[in-house]
Design a protein around this nucleic acid. Structure first.
Length: 581
RNA sequence: GGUCGCGUAGCUUAGUUGGAUAGAGCAUUUGACUUCUAAUCAGAAGGGUGCUGGUUCGACUCCAGCCGUGAUCACCA
C-alpha cells in the first residue's frame, strides 16, 4: 500500500506532465502540512517556477485543479505564500484510521538480514555508572529498532575481565579486606569497586611518599611497591597460576552477579557474552596474514605496524616488539571471529566518542585486508556523560552510580505516586538519556533531579494510562459494544482528530529515519509529540462523555490506536507503559 | 599543532534531502479540576540560531574563514 505522500507525488507528476512538460521528478517537493496551516499535504511551488517558467499563482491553481479533479481524496486546495496545501475528505480520514490500525503500526518485516550489535563493555573491577547506562539504552534501542523492521539482531557484550585494572582490585582486596565478601546489602560489583578505589588511594600515597624522598614523579609511579606487586600479579595471571586464577574467578563472579542485577533493573539483556580473557589472544594470525599480504610492516625491533599516513592518519602499532598484542589486535581477531561464527551481514559497535579514531583505524585495516564485510561495520559513537566538575572518574570514586541512581528515581516516583513498580522512575531516567541526540554530550547536574513533568518519560506514560482508563470506562457505558466499531465512519471529524491522525501517519517515517541515522532520540521526540497531540485532543474534545454514538466510537477507536502507537514507540526505547498511573 | 564533533531563549533541547511566522519543556507569570486520570490543558513573556562573509528566489541547515568548547592523535585499554 502506498503512502499518502507517494500517492500525491504520482498525481502531481501526472499533473505537470499533462499541463506543462514531461519528465519532471526531482523538483517535486511534497511534505505533510505544518500544524499551523490548514491542509494535509503541501506542495512547495518555488522549485517548479524555475522549470515551468510561469507565474507561481497560475501554476498553483492549475496543479491544484488537476489534483482535485483526479484524486478523489482531495477535498479542496488553497495557495499560501508559494505553498499549495491540499485538504483531504472525511472519507480519507476514516480510511487512514483503518490503515493505521491495520498496516502502519505493523511494519512490513521485509528485512531479514542478521546483524550483530555490540554494546556495554563492563569491567569487572567496578560497578556500572551513568555513562554505561547511556550505552546500554542506546544499544538496546538500536537493537529494538532493527528488530521492528524484521532484522535478526544478535545483542552481544564483551566483558573486560582481565588486565592490570582487574588485578588492582584483586590485590587491594587481598591486602586490605580481611576477607570481606558480598552481602545482600552490599553488591559484589560495589565491593570490588571499593577495593579498586582503595588501590588507587594507596598507590597515590606511595607515589607521594617517594616524591617526598626526592624521586622524580615518573620514576616514583613505576617504583611504587604496590604497583610492582600488581604487575607481578598480572604476570602470575598470564601464567595461569592456580591460586591467582582461583582468586580471579571468585572475585569476577561477584562482579557478574552485581552487574547482572543492574542489567535486570534496567531491563537489559544479551543474546551472547564474550570475555576478554578468552579473546585477548585472538588476532595474531591476522597480523601474520597482513604481513604476508604486505598490508603491515615489521620494524627492526620486531614490532608490527600499519602505515596510514597516506590517508591522513598516523602509523599504528599492531603488535608489540615482544610479540604481545594490543587493544586493536584483539579487536581485529574478534571481528573476524564474529563474522566466521555467526551468519551476520553487518556489525554495529556502540562505543563512546573517545574511541572514534580506534574504530576508524580498525575498519580501515579490515578493508585493506579485503574482508568483504569490512564496509558493513559501523561505530555508533555517542557523547560522554559528564558532571559539572568534568569527567566521571571511577578510580577516584567520582561517579554517578547506576544502582544508586535507579534507586533514587524509584523513591522519587514513589513519592509522587503510590506505585510499587519502578516503571515511572526508570521511564524518566531512560527517556532523559534517550531524548538527546546521540552525538551530543550530556551534562548531568547532580543537584537538580530528573524531571517528571513536561518533555519526559512519565508524561508519555501518563498519556497512555489516560487512554487505558478511557477504554476501561467505555465498557461501563450502556451503549458500548465491540461490534460498534464499524459505526465510526459516521462520525464528524474535527481538527484535533485530524492532527492526531496526521501525526500517527508519520510513524513509519520516524522509524525509518531513526534506523537510517542510528538515532533513538528521533523516536523519543516522535513519542513526545504524539503524546502532546493526544493530550491536546483529550483536553479539548469529549471522548466518552457524549451522546452521539458515532463520535463516541470514532474518538475511542482513535484514542486506542494512539495508545498502541505510543506503546510501540516507547517499547523501542525500552520504556514500559503502565496501564495505570 | 593535525583530525573529528558540538555551539539554537536564563537552563535542557527540536528542527535529517535548504522552504511558511525557528518548535517544545523547565523556571517566571495569568487562568482552568461538581465533567473521560490537573504528572494535564489554554494563554503571556522570553530566542532570530557563536561571529564574519559567500552560494541561493529562500540558509539554523550548504561553503569558506574566525571564536568558544569537547574528544582524539600511546609498545594504555
Amino acid at each position: 500500500m502506498k503512502t499518502t505522500l507517494a500517492i500525491f507525488r504520482l498525481i502531481v507528476m501526472r499533473a505537470i506532465a499533462s499541463i506543462y512538460i514531461e519528465g519532471i521528478t526531482s523538483n517535486i517537493e511534497l511534505k505533510t502540512t505544518k500544524k499551523e496551516f490548514r491542509g494535509h499535504i503541501t506542495l512547495v511551488l518555488f522549485p517548479l517556477v524555475k522549470i515551468i517558467k510561469k507565474p507561481l499563482k497560475q501554476i498553483g491553481k492549475e496543479i491544484g485543479e488537476y489534483v482535485k479533479k483526479h484524486l478523489i481524496i482531495v477535498h479542496s486546495f488553497h495557495l499560501l505564500n508559494g505553498f499549495l496545501n491540499f485538504e483531504c475528505s472525511e472519507e480519507y480520514y476514516f480510511k487512514l484510521l483503518k490503515k493505521i490500525s491495520k498496516e502502519i503500526l505493523f511494519l512490513k518485516s521485509s528485512e531479514e538480514d542478521s546483524l550483530m550489535i555490540e554494546y556495554s563493555s563492563p569491567n569487572t573491577n567496578k560497578p556500572l555508572h551513568l555513562g554505561h547506562i547511556r550505552n546500554h539504552l542506546l544499544g538496546n534501542s538500536i537493537s529494538e529498532i532493527f528488530k521492528a523492521f524484521g532484522h535478526n539482531v544478535i545483542k552481544i557484550q564483551i566483558i573486560n575481565d582481565r588486565g592490570i585494572h582487574i588485578c588492582k582490585s584483586m590485590l587491594a582486596w587481598k591486602k586490605f579486606s580481611s576477607g570481606e565478601t558480598p552481602e545482600i546489602t552490599f553488591k559484589g560489583d560495589h565491593l570490588i569497586g571499593k577495593y579498586y578505589v582503595a588501590f588507587e588511594k594507596a598507590y597515590k600515597k606511595e607515589v607521594e611518599d617517594l616524591c617526598a624522598k626526592g624521586y622524580e614523579k615518573e620514576l616514583a609511579e613505576k617504583q611504587a611497591p604496590i604497583m610492582q606487586e600488581v604487575r607481578k600479579l598480572l604476570l602470575l595471571w598470564e601464567k595461569r597460576n592456580v591460586k591467582t586464577w582461583y582468586h580471579w574467578r571468585n572475585m569476577n563472579s561477584w562482579a557478574y552477579e552485581g552487574i547482572e542485577q543492574t542489567y535486570c533493573s534496567l531491563g537489559i539483556y544479551f543474546d551472547d557474552t564474550q570475555y576478554e580473557s578468552k579473546t585477548y589472544l585472538l588476532g595474531k594470525s591476522i597480523i601474520e596474514d597482513g604481513l604476508k599480504k604486505g598490508v603491515f610492516y615489521k620494524k627492526e625491533d620486531g614490532s608490527v605496524w600499519v602505515d596510514f599516513t597516506n590517508v591522513g592518519l598516523d602509523e599504528k602499532l599492531l603488535l608489540r616488539s615482544d610479540g604481545t598484542s594490543v587493544y586493536i589486535t584483539q579487536d581485529l581477531g574478534t571481528a573476524v571471529e564474529r563474522f566466521e561464527l555467526y551468519s551476520i551481514k553487518s556489525l554495529i559497535y556502540i562505543v563512546g566518542e573517545e574511541q572514534e579514531y580506534h574504530f576508524k583505524v580498525l575498519f580501515l585495516i579490515l578493508k585493506y585486508m579485503r574482508y568483504a564485510w569490512a564496509d558493513r561495520l559501523f561505530h555508533l559513537s555517542y557523547g560522554l556523560v559528564q558532571l559539572l566538575s568534568g569527567k566521571m572518574k571511577s578510580r577516584e570514586g567520582i561517579i554517578i552510580d547506576a544502582d544508586n541512581l535507579i534507586d533514587e528515581m524509584h523513591k522519587l516516583a514513589q513519592f509522587l505516586t503510590y506505585q510499587k513498580e519502578n516503571t515511572l522512575g526508570i521511564g524518566a531516567l531512560k527517556y532523559f538519556l534517550l531524548k538527546i541526540d546521540t552525538k551530543k554530550r550530556i551534562l548531568y547536574h547532580t543537584k537538580s533531579s530528573i524531571d517528571f513533568n513536561g518533555n519526559t518519560g512519565p508524561y508519555i506514560q501518563y498519556t497512555n494510562a489516560r487512554i487505558s482508563s478511557l477504554y476501561r470506562k467505555a465498557f461501563t457505558k450502556m451503549y458500548w459494544r465491540n461490534s460498534m466499531i464499524r459505526y465510526y465512519r459516521y462520525s464528524i471529524i474535527g481538527r484535533y482528530e485530524k492532527y492526531l491522525l496526521k501525526y500517527m501517519e508519520q510513524y513509519t517515517e520516524a522509524l525509518l529515519l531513526a534506523k537510517k541515522c542510528l538515532i533513538p532520540s528521533i523516536i523519543a521526540n516522535y513519542a513526545y509529540n504524539l503524546s502532546k497531540t493526544f493530550n491536546d485532543f483529550y483536553q479539548n474534545v469529549c471522548i466518552i462523555n457524549i451522546k452521539n454514538k458515532y463520535d463516541f466510537v470514532f474518538r475511542l477507536f482513535l484514542s486506542k490506536k494512539c495508545g498502541n502507537c505510543l506503546k510501540k514507540t516507547m517499547n523501542l526505547l525500552g520504556i514500559e507503559m503502565p496501564e495505570y498511573v
